[in-house]
């Protein structure tokens, strides 16, 4: 849960929040591509570190740390599976390089989470919806997206209330064998579905009442304009991409244990 907690948007004003979501998304994709290009620990450490200033600039350090902590669980799974499988294949001699490799794979995941969390923490879903719209995604889809974001917590709370209401009538979810346990969820699922349908009808009614579909040329309260910051980020991202691609093919990347020979000589 806490990993998603870390992805929840909070309204803060910062230069990063003001960036155009499209440019930020381009940045995330570029990060993704670069991270996937490299299997070595060193460049991944660099990727991890160059993003930290963005986090502090966006004033979301606390939430960001939360999401990283949430990711820790998955990260450790990735680390151990990589480690165990490589160990099984390569045996004991290669232990330091296996260790480095597993760490690199883990860090790759962390870098991805890092850039995604920067994106989600600093982009209001409203702006995201707008960006989708500007990218010629049909408006209905964009609306569905923002509404889904809006109603997920509401539905989660409703599920909790329904569960409480049925427990108050003596329902014990953990009772019985597997089959019985699955059946125990029926008294929760049915009200949940019925209410979701009722809710969507009410929503549709409210939308219609506010002139939904009046014109094809819908306007928007917010507008997306590329500003200086956007150009800077876009430029930096392109430079990073070019450098990364160049380095990938033309510069041999040293392993950490080659830089710190004391580790290898053990």
């Amino acid at each position: 849960m806490s990993m998603f907690e870390g992805l929840k948007f909070r309204k803060v004003s910062s230069p990063i929040h003001d960036l155009d979501p499209r440019v930020k998304f381009f940045y995330v994709i570029a990060m993704f591509a670069v991270a996937v290009m490299y299997m070595e620990l060193l460049p991944l450490i660099v990727l991890f570190l160059i993003q930290v200033p963005l986090v502090t600039m966006a004033k979301v350090t606390k939430q960001w740390i939360k999401s990283m902590r949430g990711a820790a669980f998955f990260a450790s799974i990735i680390f151990f599976t990589n480690f165990i499988f490589s160990y099984l294949y390569q045996g004991q001699q290669a232990l330091p390089s296996i260790l480095e490799y597993s760490m690199a794979m883990t860090l790759r995941f962390i870098v991805l989470v890092e850039s995604f969390s920067i994106f989600f923490l600093t982009t209001s879903p409203d702006h995201l919806g707008l960006a989708l719209e500007k990218s010629h995604v049909p408006y209905e889809f964009c609306f569905a997206f923002t509404t889904a974001v809006r109603f997920v917590p509401v539905l989660a709370e409703e599920a909790q209330t329904i569960m409480d209401a049925q427990k108050a009538r003596g329902l014990e979810l953990e009772k019985g064998n597997i089959l019985k346990r699955v059946r125990n969820y029926i008294p929760i699922l049915i009200p949940l579905i019925v209410n979701a349908i009722r809710r969507s009808l009410e929503l549709a009614e409210a939308m219609e009442s506010r002139a939904w579909g009046a014109t094809k040329n819908r306007t928007n309260l917010y507008e997306l304009k590329l500003r200086r910051g956007d150009y800077i980020l876009a430029l930096l991202t392109v430079v990073m991409l070019v450098l990364a691609v160049y380095a990938r093919w033309h510069i041999p990347i040293p392993r950490i244990m080659e830089i710190f020979p004391w580790k290898a000589s053990r």
């Binding site: 409203d126 923002t146 009410e202 409210a206 040329n217 309260l221």
Partner: peptide
């Protein structure tokens, strides 16, 4: 309507208030 929860769809108050006007295609 009765239930405020089901007549607000946007993620900010002002966006919600703007919803009807946007639908009508009124200039920004």
């Amino acid at each position: 309507f009765q239930n405020p929860e089901n007549q607000l769809f946007a993620l900010s108050v002002e966006k919600d208030v703007a919803f009807g006007l946007e639908n009508l295609g009124i200039p920004r």
